[in-house]
């Protein structure tokens, strides 16, 4: 399948998702408001921390705003269009992947774009506001744009990578969602303080350093080298996640028992 048809398929999937999601507009507005307050309260908790202790290894509340903004924009953009990745463990568990495997399109893209969650738009808007408040958006807009694109690619890879656990953990959807929440908690803390075991985990096991430590340090130190490292790490992780998915697909057990002869 050519690139042009892949792109046509993607744009159609996105359009359909958007139409379906704006149907409940009042609920959407309510969700957006609660999300603003939720993220605001979370950051206010950190504001109190930085009011008491001025910085964590050079990271101040500005960097915390930037980290929270970048992480929320990236992961929420993925969830808006590719909520299918969050549903993937349930699909694997219930043996419902056939409908995607039998299509000529790319299986990962089909699964990912099969659902969307427009309510996460509020997190994207709040995240953008936080990035704006951090002051980095106006100082280096191009780098911020690059980091957001890489963050979206990273978040896509992360959700795909963690969803692959479903091929081995039967009935493990709840557990996988808990792991995703735990990873989100750890990724949204100031990672400049990490060392030892946590540093190893954040680089090689669940490489969240490529969406938290490296991009923030690249922007803070105006370092093109760290930005390049973020790009390379993200692309390698994306390729690794896709390969892991296809490898794990060999362990997939269909829920269909075939025709009853």
């Amino acid at each position: 399948m050519g690139m042009a048809s892949q792109f046509r398929f993607l744009s159609t999937a996105i359009r359909l998702n958007l139409r379906a999601m704006v149907e409940y507009r009042y609920e959407l507005i309510g969700t957006c408001l609660t999300t603003f307050f939720k993220l605001g309260l979370f950051l206010a908790t950190w504001l109190m921390f930085f009011h008491e202790y001025q910085d964590v290894h050079g990271w101040t509340f500005r960097e915390m705003l930037l980290l929270s903004g970048l992480f929320n924009v990236s992961i929420s953009t993925v969830e808006i269009f590719c909520y299918g990745l969050r549903q993937l463990p349930i699909m694997v568990d219930n043996g419902q992947l056939e409908s995607f495997l039998l299509q000529p399109q790319n299986t990962i893209l089909l699964c990912a774009f099969s659902r969307g969650k427009m309510a996460n738009l509020a997190e994207v808007v709040s995240g953008t506001i936080f990035i704006g408040l951090s002051g980095y958006l106006w100082a280096m807009p191009l780098q911020i744009f690059a980091v957001i694109i890489l963050g979206v690619l990273f978040s896509f890879s992360l959700l795909l990578y963690l969803a692959c656990l479903a091929f081995f953990l039967h009935g493990g959807n709840e557990l996988i969602q808990e792991i995703i929440s735990a990873v989100r908690i750890v990724a949204s803390q100031p990672s400049s303080a990490l060392r030892g075991l946590l540093q190893f985990l954040s680089l090689f096991v669940v490489p969240i350093a490529f969406c938290s430590y490296f991009p923030i340090e690249a922007l803070r130190q105006h370092s093109m080298g760290l930005l390049a490292l973020t790009a390379v790490g993200t692309i390698v992780f994306f390729r690794f996640s896709c390969r892991t998915f296809y490898y794990c697909l060999r362990h997939y057990e269909s829920g269909s028992h075939g025709p009853n002869l």
Partner: peptide, 13 residues
């Protein structure tokens, strides 16, 4: 993991 993370954050400040 959260305890370890915060122990490192608290020790750095």
């Amino acid at each position: 993991l959260i305890l370890l993370l915060f122990s490192q954050i608290f020790s750095s400040v």
